[in-house]
Design a protein around this nucleic acid. Structure first.
Lengths: 221, 221
DNA sequence: TTAATTCTTGACCATTCGGTCAGTTTTATC
DNA sequence: GATAAAACTGACCGAATGGTCAAGAATTAA
């Protein structure tokens, strides 16, 4: 294969091919699920022979797990810490915004995750019942403290978190439905900003989320 | 095969076997998607030889389409008509409630639908851009009229419909995630009622949905 | 009882699946 | 240019895929 740039740092070929394979596989797994996706199809999308895919990834399972881990690390990156002293409106708004951004920047990874959950999460059970559960519980504690201080209605924190997850995830997972119904070819940045504002408004107003009284407990900004 | 009840109306065997196959196939397709599910697995779930599945259903594709159509008819059943004169709070509440009930009564059909959309809706494109789009548009008209009369904040009706769809669908599609994170084995009726109340409250309050002034335009009940 | 219809199923088919491997080519190092 | 390491890939394997078919079993209709 003709390679125009002969001089490049070591491992460049590996990096480039792995990137191509991972991207191709993400699309295939997102579209057809773990079982439904085939290495042949992934190889074709990546423009490589099937043997080459296995040379780099070892096996279909390893490739799939690697993609899941990549997606979960993206997910973890937006699960930032919050403190009871933070401004609830800011925290919730930032969370919704980050989640929408993730759905937009990595729609296929998002669908890959959804497909994994739909199939009963055979590879992510541990994560769901471990790290992610702990994260949800820690946020629930903060939300309850906000409720005690009258900064939010006494809603079930877990249902609220699920509401935000589902309503934002929707725009990646059900993109086909959204486009089909709205008659668009794609959603542009303005649409996404509009959706983000709408979700923030409904959640903040719907849960009675308020900013803390000025000077009471400064949100450290 | 021993058949205890010899005397029964014609077609009883067919009905019973088709039921078993459809149920088995719904679970398999929901779990693994169209490509990922295998007739062998479906036959095993139904307790029949593979040949028998093909005898009744013709082909994998026909079986899949039949399941999709069955699910869409359930879906259509809750897309009832509304009039601008109806009480917005009642309409939205009833819609959320019906949608939650559908997710609960037919979780695997719900996941089957989700899997179809995730895969790009190869079999449902027409439905999405046709009947469903028309339905959404007709509801959007009513919602805008409500907004003009001050019965709801001027939110984008389509985003509101998507919000209700996604947040309710979540409890079927992401059941594994919900159970893993809450540490439950299953969600009981009380949980679902709690979730329903939460979603109704957030949406109604969040969108500023109000009941029409008494006697103004009676909701015909 | 007989004849027709429906139902059942194992054997079989071409194709594709994930995966192995040996052998070749390309690249990096000296 | 020589050597070693990395990259590449066609051929191949056993298993599983969706689907066909013919022949037999069970049920129904006459």
């Amino acid at each position: 294969m003709a390679n125009s740039t002969t001089e490049q740092e070591a491992g460049a070929i590996r990096r480039r091919n792995e990137r191509a394979i991972l991207q191709a596989a993400e699309g295939a797994f997102a579209c057809h699920g773990y079982r439904g996706a085939s290495l042949q199809d992934i190889a074709r999308r990546a423009g490589l022979p099937k043997s080459n895919v296995l040379y780099y990834m070892g096996s279909k399972r390893r490739l799939y797990v690697r993609l899941l881990e990549r997606m979960m690390s993206r997910w973890n990156a937006i699960l930032d810490n919050i403190s009871p002293d933070d401004d609830p409106v800011e925290v919730i708004s930032a969370f919704i915004r980050a989640k929408i951004r993730l759905s937009r920047s990595h729609p296929e990874g998002s669908r890959l995750f959804a497909s994994e959950i739909l199939g009963g999460a055979p590879f992510l059970q541990e994560y769901l019942q471990g790290d992610l559960r702990d994260w949800v519980e820690s946020r629930a504690v903060v939300l309850r403290q906000w409720a005690e201080r009258g900064l939010i209605d006494p809603v079930n924190p877990v249902w609220l978190i699920f509401l935000i997850w589902s309503s934002t995830q929707h725009y990646a997972d059900f993109e086909t439905q959204v486009l089909g119904i709205t008659g668009r070819q794609s959603l542009d940045d303005d649409d996404l900003e509009d959706i983000t504002q709408f979700l923030i408004q409904v959640v903040v107003k719907g849960c009675g989320i308020r900013r803390p009284a000025a000077g009471a407990t400064p949100p450290d900004s």
